Simulated assay, not measured.
Amino acid sequence: MRIGELSERTGTPRRLLRYYEEQSLIVSDRAANGYREYDESSVDRVLQVRGLLDAGLPTRIIKQILPCLDKPRVIHFPDATPEMLATLERERDRMTERIRCLTRNRDAVAEYLAVVRTGRAPDTAARAASGR
């Protein structure tokens, strides 16, 4: 498939796909006319890369763990170095903190919406929003 189709199927702008290729996160072949050609597995790979980026992993770490990914959400890492494990543990902990922060923010927005929509005090609105 060409870059336009990969872009449409993954919801990823062409510019980002080119960047992923520059960073060796995805690969393409070149057709005789010079167009990039991607195989079907590129769809899953792009979705993996986007998911890891959305989780907060930097591209340098994604590049290191991509060879260990067989399919989305399955990681095989038989020969991980202690340094790589420490790096991944730090990234995991950083993601956990981000999740806590996002959860607090989501809850605050939900409470605000409940108050605005119902015109009730925050504690009453929160109970109404949770169905209690």
Score class of each variant (00 low, 15 high):
Arg45Ile: 11
Tyr19Asn: 04
Ala31Arg: 13
Ser28Ile: 04
Tyr38Phe: 06
Ala86Pro: 01
Leu17Arg: 00
Arg60Val: 14
Gln48Tyr: 00
Ser7Pro: 10
Tyr19Met: 08
Pro58Ile: 05
Ala121Ile: 03
Tyr35Ser: 08
Arg14Asp: 06
Pro67Asn: 04
Pro78Phe: 02
Met95Phe: 03
Cys68Phe: 02
Arg117Ser: 13
Met95Ile: 03
Ile62Gln: 12
Arg127Asn: 09
Thr12Ser: 09
Ala86Leu: 12
Cys101Ala: 14
Val43Trp: 01
Glu37His: 08
Thr87Trp: 03
Leu69Thr: 04
Tyr35Val: 07
Glu111His: 01
Tyr19Ser: 04
Arg2Lys: 13
Thr59Lys: 11
Arg98Lys: 10
Asp107Thr: 07
Leu6Asn: 00
Ser28Arg: 03
Lys71Thr: 14
Gly4Gln: 15
Gly51Glu: 08
Arg15Met: 15
Ile3Phe: 05
Gly34Ala: 13
Leu57Ala: 09
Arg94Thr: 11
Asp70Glu: 14
Pro67Gly: 05
Pro78Asn: 02
Arg92Phe: 09
Ala80Met: 01
Gly34Asp: 09
Leu66Thr: 02
Ser130Lys: 12
Ser7Val: 10
Val115Ala: 10
Met1Trp: 02
Ala129Cys: 06
Arg9His: 05
Asn105Pro: 01
Tyr112Ile: 09
Glu5Leu: 15
Val74Thr: 07
Arg9Trp: 04
Pro67Phe: 03
Gly51Asn: 10
Tyr38Lys: 00
Glu8Leu: 14
Leu47Phe: 04
Arg92Val: 07
Asp107Ala: 13
Gly119Leu: 08
Tyr38Cys: 00
Asp123Leu: 07
Ser7Gly: 12
Arg14Phe: 05
Arg50Ala: 05
Thr124Ser: 09
Leu102Asp: 11
Met84His: 01
Ala31Leu: 13
Arg94Glu: 14
Leu69Val: 15
Arg30Val: 02
Arg2Trp: 03
Gln23Leu: 15
Thr12Met: 09
Leu85Thr: 05
Val27Met: 06
Gly4Leu: 14
Pro72Tyr: 02
Ala121Thr: 06
Ile75Gly: 09
Asp70Val: 11
Thr103Phe: 06
Arg120Met: 13
Thr12Asp: 05
Arg127Pro: 06
Arg90Phe: 08
Ala86Lys: 12
Arg104Asn: 14
Val74Gly: 02
Ile3Leu: 10
Gly131Ile: 09
Phe77Glu: 04
Gly51Ser: 13
Leu85Lys: 07
Ala108Trp: 08
Thr96Gln: 14
Cys101Leu: 15
Asn33Tyr: 08
Ile99Lys: 07
Thr124Pro: 00
Gly131Gln: 07
Pro72Glu: 03
